[in-house]
Design a protein around this nucleic acid. Structure first.
Length: 504
RNA sequence: GGUAUCGUGGCCGAGUGGUUAGGCACAGGUCUGCAAAACCUGCUACAGCGGUUCGAAUCCGCUCGAUACCUCCA
């Protein structure tokens, strides 16, 4: 597929509008997404963000872009409320070396990404592996006069930057600097060594006993959280690149400060398109550990949580995410998950039936039927949904509608010649493309890794059952059906034969 | 308190000036040895109050509610 054949629109937070995607280098796309801070098990909300960007990554590739997707691992510099480095705090609590903590939760994060069947990014840089680049960027910002040193720490001079580059600071998050200061909460106005409350640290002097510190021209210390993304995106994607993504909650201050840092260092904007995913809610409320309104991916899969009646497979959860647009809040609750589970199974089953169909070439007269046109229109609708800011909900709805033609054909409620052989082939290709390549779903109703043994056994068993049914030996037939049901396999008799599906 | 986004039928959730989203649930029907599935039909909404318009769920205003953010060694 040629990328110039289509108009892909993205909602750009920077402009607040949908814009046509025009890459810097035609046919190529550079995308940076803020990755996790690896001080604890990955949050389910984070998973949604990474699943959303995985689909964006996959779709860009599907429509022909050569994509470089960079997603970092934050393993230093992200401070918690009490000012302690999150990594160091996690380490202290668990009595581990900071790098032990980082390793543990990086492994956990990768495992979760694998479970959700997301593709690994092209590059996954770590903050601790890019200290020289970050020091260099601090130097660039100092050189251009947008930062100052105080007692071994370096602060970004937001006021001066704003005066010399009007309209840049605050554009992304829709804030006005003066209002921002006037309206900040009183308890946050504590004084410190900064010249102005709006300033933020880009290099911090380490405290006695800190382990995660590095030598720099200013002090032995560590980089500010915001700096790592600026430094690593610049290193791997260039000073200005195509897409920067992340969760909605990172807009301010993290992304706003990133923009300021990049401008401050090179005088240019980092990304042309800023994409933000929305939050995941639980029972219509934000997830909050202190109020017990939270659920981890593991609990969601196992069902070990008071919020859900049973466990849901990772693919059901992913399908559930696909039902909503990435910019909408999505409400997790038991009813919605059950609906998603049924919807997911139906789609996978429809695809299974579709892929087994063979076109009726003998009776094909070369004409295009109304059904052909309707199916083709639905395929177009699926693609134009994705082209319109990655609207997976529209794409899914289109596949569902197209799927009803598949069942009608299978049930012979629609005559086979009504669908032209090439339209059927196209539908097969499109279903596989959307389900597996773009959405990155797996068929968790299939038994993986048995080299087809189960498939072979099932074919044999169903052959025996078919023979019994042909002789109206209902006792044998039902014994097989009930036995399989007890083993977790549902048998469904259709006009074209019997299909089976594993109940997860 | 400020800023932003949002408020859609029994549930989840697209759409965003005139046209059936879709899924799940529910009811009736067709098919089937029975069951399941599938297919068909039905239920059919846009928080409230005003305004703009030939026409608004969609635009504007207000009210109510929800979510996020509001850095200052996050």
């Amino acid at each position: 597929m040629n990328t110039t054949d289509r108009s892909l629109k993205l909602y750009n937070t920077l402009s607040g509008k949908k814009e046509e995607f025009q890459p810097i280098v035609p046919g190529h796309a550079g995308m940076y997404v803020c990755g996790p801070t690896v001080y604890y098990n990955v949050h389910l909300g984070n998973c949604r963000t990474f699943v959303s960007f995985d689909i964006i990554y996959r779709y860009l590739m599907h429509i022909g872009y050569k994509v470089r997707y960079v997603r970092n691992i934050t393993d230093v510099g992200h401070l918690s409320d009490d000012g302690e480095d999150r990594m160091a705090k996690g380490a202290r609590v668990a009595q581990l070396e900071p790098m032990e903590v980082a390793q543990k939760y990086t492994v956990d994060f990768h495992e979760m990404m694998r479970i959700f069947n997301t593709l690994p990014p092209s590059i996954e840089p770590r903050a601790t592996g890019h200290i020289p680049e970050q020091i260099e960027m601090v130097q660039d910002i100092l050189k251009r006069g947008y930062a100052y040193e105080r007692n071994g720490s370096v602060y970004f001079n937001v006021r001066k930057f704003d005066q010399e580059n009007p309209g840049v600071y605050g554009k992304l998050s829709g804030r006005v600097l003066d209002e921002l200061l006037a309206e900040s909460r009183d308890n946050l106005k504590s004084q410190d060594e900064k010249d102005d409350p709006a300033d933020f640290a880009i290099w911090m002097k380490g405290r006695p006993g800190d382990i995660m510190v590095w030598k720099s021209p200013w002090s032995v210390g560590f980089p500010g959280w915001h700096l790592e993304c600026s430094a690593m995106s610049t290193k791997y994607l260039g000073q200005t690149f195509d897409i920067h993504g992340g969760g909605n909650d990172l807009k301010f201050p993290h992304h706003e400060n990133e923009v300021a840092q990049n401008h401050g260092a090179c005088g240019c904007a980092p990304a042309r398109y800023w994409l933000h995913t929305n939050m995941l809610l639980l029972n219509s409320k934000k997830m909050s550990k202190s109020e017990g309104n939270t659920i981890s991916p593991t609990e969601l899969f196992s069902g070990d949580s008071p919020h859900i009646s049973k466990g849901y497979s990772p693919m059901v959860v992913k399908f559930f995410m696909l039902m909503a647009h990435y910019r909408s809040t999505l409400d997790i609750n038991d009813d919605a998950l059950q609906a998603a589970e049924k919807g997911y199974r139906k789609l996978m089953e429809t695809n299974k039936i579709l892929q087994k169909m063979t076109p009726d070439a003998d009776n094909y007269d070369g004409s295009e039927s109304d059904t052909d046109r309707e199916i083709l229109a639905l395929i177009d609708q699926a693609y134009s949904g994705m082209d319109d800011d990655f609207n997976t909900a529209i794409a899914l709805a289109s596949l569902n509608e197209a799927g009803s033609y598949v069942h009608k054909l299978a049930n012979q409620q629609l005559a086979a010649p009504e669908v032209s052989p090439w339209v059927l082939e196209r539908l097969k290709t499109v279903f596989n493309a959307f389900i597996f390549d773009i959405f990155g779903l797996l068929d968790d109703t299939e038994t993986a890794g048995d080299n087809g043994a189960v498939e072979g056994l099932m074919n044999l068993i169903l052959d025996i059952r078919a023979a019994a049914r042909a002789q109206k030996d209902w006792a044998t037939s039902d014994k097989i059906r009930d036995g399989l049901a007890a083993a977790g396999i549902a048998v469904k008799d259709g006009k074209e034969g019997t299909v089976w599906v594993k109940q997860v």
